[in-house]
Amino acid sequence: MIAMDENDISFFKDGLRLDGRRADELRPVKIEVGILARADGSCYIEMGGNKVIAAVYGPREVHPRHLQEVTRAIVRYRYNMASFSVEERKRPGPDRRSYELSKVSREALEPVILTSFFPRSVIDVFVEVLQADAGTRTAGINAAAVALADAGIPMKSMISSCAAGKVGDTIVLDPMKEEDNFGQADLPIAMTPNGDITLMQMDGNLTPVEFGQAVTMAMKGAKDIYELQRRALVAKYSQISTDSAREEVHLCE
């Protein structure tokens, strides 16, 4: 990365950010439900330059068997980046970063999944980042939550995820690549629509006051995303006709 002091760059022009957003504005979000035929549930999400696809399989048999739990389903979450999703080609396969993101993302979703309904089984969540542009973990969690609902997995509520950051001494919502790379802090959260937080990470420095502002802002962002998730699911399931039901029988295999 270019050696650059964060004070050297101006993140704001005429009170707006480099991409024309206000400080508390999300990047454009696009959500599509059920875009994969093989998966039990799936979701494609675009958040700014991020393009992420999530698929859910299950509940299904656990392999290897020793992982199964007698009283509940286990949840597995695999976060993976396509090698062409980033500026410099990424070597395929998991690395330390993707293990961490898989773990925290799983823990962000697990609390709302009614795993006790499906003992000795597994619910697999696979997230593929096709294009990365800062905030892939939040995009992944948003897509995964919708895919879980699309798969008909019983859940206590939705999970929505959003980050806030600090750039040029200002708290901003949903940092983009440049703000993430040269900013002063990044704080991704995931939460239920009632505001129960299931994921919170932080990178960089914030004063207690700024931290409060950032959390409030990220929660507001997550709430807006929840509306979009809900709308996408309603849009799909309110227009199921007899036609598409018949189609599904022959779709695959």
Partner: peptide, 12 residues
């Protein structure tokens, strides 16, 4: 990459 989201028979 036969990523596991593409088919129930693909494994990570």
């Amino acid at each position: 990459e036969l990523v596991p989201l593409a088919s129930p028979s693909f494994e990570p």
